[in-house]
Amino acid sequence: MASSVSPPSSRLARWREDHASQLSDLRRGLFRFARNRLSLLGLWIVVVMLGVAVTGSTWVPFPGDTLGDVHMDNRLQPPNATHWFGTDDAGRDVFTRVIVATRTSFQVGLIILGVAISIGVTLGAVAGYVGGTPNQIIMRLTDVMLTFPGIFLPMALAAALGRGMVPAMLALSVTWWPGYCRLVEAQMLKVREEDFVAGARAIGASQRRVIFRHILPNTLTAIVVKASMDFGFAVLALASLGFIGIGIQPPEPDWGSMIALGRRFMPGAWWISTFPGLFMFVMVLGFNLLGDGLRDLLDPNATVK
C-alpha cells in the first residue's frame, strides 16, 4: 500500500539536505567550540550542574533536611561517610541542602533572565529602531537604572516586597533588564545601518519584518552570549539577597543563606559555608566559560583559524 506520508527517515534526510549549510556551519562552530578546552569545561560544568538540579531532589540522602527536619543531636558534624559535607547547626546534611539549592538557583536564574531579556530586548529594540524621543526616554531610564550600585536596587525592592523566593525573584527580574536594553539598542543601531536592512526596505518589507526577520536575528549572538555569562551572576545576585537575609528563607535551602549561616561558625565549622560557596563559584565559572565558547559557535561569519 502506498503511504501518503513519507517515512521519517526520508523526511529527516530531506531536512538535512535543505539545511546542509546551517548544519555545516553548526559543525564548524562545534569544531571551533570543541577546540577550546575551556569552553568544553564550561559546557561540562553547566551540563553536570543542570543534571544535578533536575534530578537532585530524588537522590539526596536526607530529603527531609530541606523541609524543616532538625537533628540537634547531630549538629556541627565535620564531613564524614554519612554526611559528605558535614552538618550545620541544626544537624541538617549540608550535602543535601547544597544539591537541592542547585535546582532553586537554576529556576530563579532562568526566570530572572527570561523576564530581564523580554523587557530589555523589547525596550532596546524600540529605542534602537525608532530613535528620537522614545530612544531618549528609554535610554535615560536605562542610565538611571544602571547608576544604582549593583545589588542595592533589588535589595531595596525585595525588602519592600517582603521576604521569600518570589519577592527576591521579582526584584531581581525587574532590575536586571538595563544591561540587555543597552546591548540590544547598540546592536540595533549597528545592524540598522547595514546594507541588507536598506535592501529589505527596498523590496518593500514592512517595519515589523525588517525588525524581526532582518535586524533582531543578527543581534541574537550578542544576546545569547551575554545571557549565558549573566546566568552565573544572576545566581550570585540571588545568593547575595539570601546572604543578607531577604532572599529565600530557611528551611528552604539557598547557597547565600547557607553561607551567611555558616559565617557564625567560622573557622571551626568551615564546611557549612565552604561547600555552598564552592558550588556557586563553579557554577559562575562554568557559565562564563560556556559564554565565551558560544560566541565562537554562533558567529555565522567566523572562519576556522
Partner: peptide
C-alpha cells in the same frame, strides 16, 4: 536596487532560497 557591496547587502542568516524568495513572500 542592486547594492554596491554584495558582502553587506545580503542578510547573513538567510539562505539563498529565502533571500530570493522573500520579495515574493512580502
Amino acid at each position: 536596487i542592486v547594492f554596491q557591496n554584495p558582502f553587506s547587502s545580503l542578510n547573513p542568516r538567510m539562505t539563498v532560497r529565502q533571500l530570493v524568495g522573500e520579495p515574493l513572500q512580502i
